[in-house]
Design a protein around this nucleic acid. Structure first.
Lengths: 124, 124
DNA sequence: CCGAGTTACTTTCTTCTGGGAAGTACATAC
DNA sequence: GTATGTACTTCCCAGAAGAAAGTAACTCGG
């Protein structure tokens, strides 16, 4: 891995920012964390991501593959299956995303409670 | 903090998923990490987020405040200034987001290199 | 007093992205 | 021959995001 050329996420034109946007995109985080359990097929990812459409799953997977974060392997069996897996590049990102997801699940109660006691925030 | 009622990020209807979507929204992550350096004003956040429009910054800040992740304090000076600061709830999330941002900046070179050697991915 | 400047937004208009449903290709199973 | 399963693609439209201009309250300079 390259030690030099550290990116700057604040700069919209920097590749580092594009990489950040890629992993924080609408469905990327869910897919990447799913793949921490090992390589998975299209239909499994679709089910586990919870709410993603075919179109967006396809686009998300294409973007992640183009960015070098996942690999796509076609198994020419009958019904042909396709497996998606994380690359080494993705490992560091998935660890952070896993923490973020754990945090969200742990603080679900706090969040729900806050929203309940601050209904005045919603304008009539 | 509540120990019980752990959320499930896979379920689109679960508040935990909404919380996860909130912190991974287009501009939320950048704003939250900015605020790790201490409370900041509107104009500072706008400049540091790099590329956000007034409209989206306003909406992002409103959503984060409604979700209990930041506080908004008006200082009635002349020109009045407004300060935004992280809540305790947000701390865990910002730590994870900081790691994600560091990862993106460290691997900027790898990402740029991959995109360069895989220009065939881009359809004509 | 008049106009320009500052801050923190809001509003309007246009463009782009995402969701939903349906379609496709190939193969096996009934 | 009809149905099922897998892994997508295509189309249309609603909603989200971007750009730019407008607003309110106050202050300062001339």
């Amino acid at each position: 891995m390259q030690e030099s050329a550290r990116g700057n996420v604040r700069d919209p034109a920097c590749p580092g920012r594009q990489l950040f946007d890629l992993v924080t995109a609408r469905w990327s985080a869910l897919v990447l964390v799913d793949l921490m359990d090992g390589p998975q097929r299209w239909s499994e990812l679709r089910r586990r991501a919870g709410g993603v459409s075919d179109k967006m799953l396809a686009q998300t997977l294409r973007d992640l593959e183009a960015g070098g974060l996942i690999t796509r392997t076609v198994h020419t069996s009958r019904p042909p299956t396709v497996q998606y897996a994380l690359t080494d590049l993705a490992r560091g990102a998935t660890a952070a995303l896993q923490h973020l997801q754990d945090w969200a699940e742990e603080h679900t109660g706090d969040y729900a409670h806050h929203r309940h006691t601050h209904t005045a925030d919603l304008k009539p």
